[in-house]
Design a protein around this nucleic acid. Sequence first.
DNA 1: TGGGACATACCGACTGGTTAGTCTGCCCCT
DNA 2: AGGGGCAGACTAACCAGTCGGTATGTCCCA
Lengths: 202, 202
Amino acid sequence: MASIKEGASGGGAAKPVAQRLLATATRLFAEQGYDRTSVQEIVDAAGVTKGALYHYFGSKEDLLHEVYGRVLRLQQERLDRFADADAPVEQRLRDAAADVVVTTIENLDDTKIFFRSMHHLSPEKDKQVRAERRRYHERFRALVEEGQHTGVFSADVPADLVVDYHFGSVHHLGTWYREDGPLSPQQVADHLAGLLLRALRP
Amino acid sequence: MASIKEGASGGGAAKPVAQRLLATATRLFAEQGYDRTSVQEIVDAAGVTKGALYHYFGSKEDLLHEVYGRVLRLQQERLDRFADADAPVEQRLRDAAADVVVTTIENLDDTKIFFRSMHHLSPEKDKQVRAERRRYHERFRALVEEGQHTGVFSADVPADLVVDYHFGSVHHLGTWYREDGPLSPQQVADHLAGLLLRALRP
DNA sequence: TGGGACATACCGACTGGTTAGTCTGCCCCT
DNA sequence: AGGGGCAGACTAACCAGTCGGTATGTCCCA
């Protein structure tokens, strides 16, 4: 329901207008912020007009919500994959923690928007997004708790706080990570996952 | 130059208008975001009119910049105090790391604004704020490096990344910390500083 | 084969409302 | 009597969303 109204375009043209609009909006939102980006700017940059945008999307906010949906679905799916793997819990947590870093860096525009503009959503959509985020948080927390119960992680720190601790660093990536910096996404991920696992050593 | 045009008010009235405006703006910016808060709202909530606001501040952006200046000065001063203390480096880092958490929670409105609205500043002011943040970052990094050189901290993770790691969690506080939650500011600070120090164990 | 009926995809001028900032002037203290 | 401190109406710009219109395509029945 939250997905784009099929671009149809029978034969298979160059680039569906709806997707071009979403990609353009994502870039502009990340660069200038949601409120600072006008609908006119988006359609100009995408080479269409408002008529096209409002043909595919119900509102400007729908564009934002669409970005959120994409990120959430992607991250949740990947987390589930790693958490369900057949490996010791410390390995599963390490893999999941590192993966979310890589995925975040690879979609840095989306995640910048995600964390900066969350509070721009209408109460209704905000509630939905929060619910999905909570599911994600809880899945991650379950990994930490499992390790604490089996004794491979230190138990004298609340699991919730540990999760927020790690996601703080993930959240923060958009602020400091530069593509032309000295570290590859995978290197950053390995370092951050390493720090987390060491912080959890009993 | 970046400070408020003296409220004068010779004798010492109830509450200087300039400070009331700044406090009101801070609250509203934190609640609704900078762009979503109109100047009219601010002056209404402060019980004055636009004439008063533009008498004391050059622009809406000046209000934001003023909030930034306050936070930056406060945090820098406190960091310097802890970093200069006469104690082993692991103790100084722990104290500094915990203190910034407590200070952040105690000024959660300011820091929410700080991290959310940074990119709303004009290039000129943005440059200035960045420079001050960098000084702060470097002071903190020096502590990590000192410990790495003297061997009390593991050296196989870049010091810059460690600093961003910790400040990620600080940055993130505004997202999850609730006053009516189970943890006091000091408890959160102790946990986060503990995690950092354990992550750095050789 | 042709043509009417209808739908999809998009255009772009327009509207109603909001906004930051200005300006003139009053009031009160010194 | 002069100026700081403020009021409040005003302006010029901008913005999300609307709406009537057009061009192109598809389906169906004769």
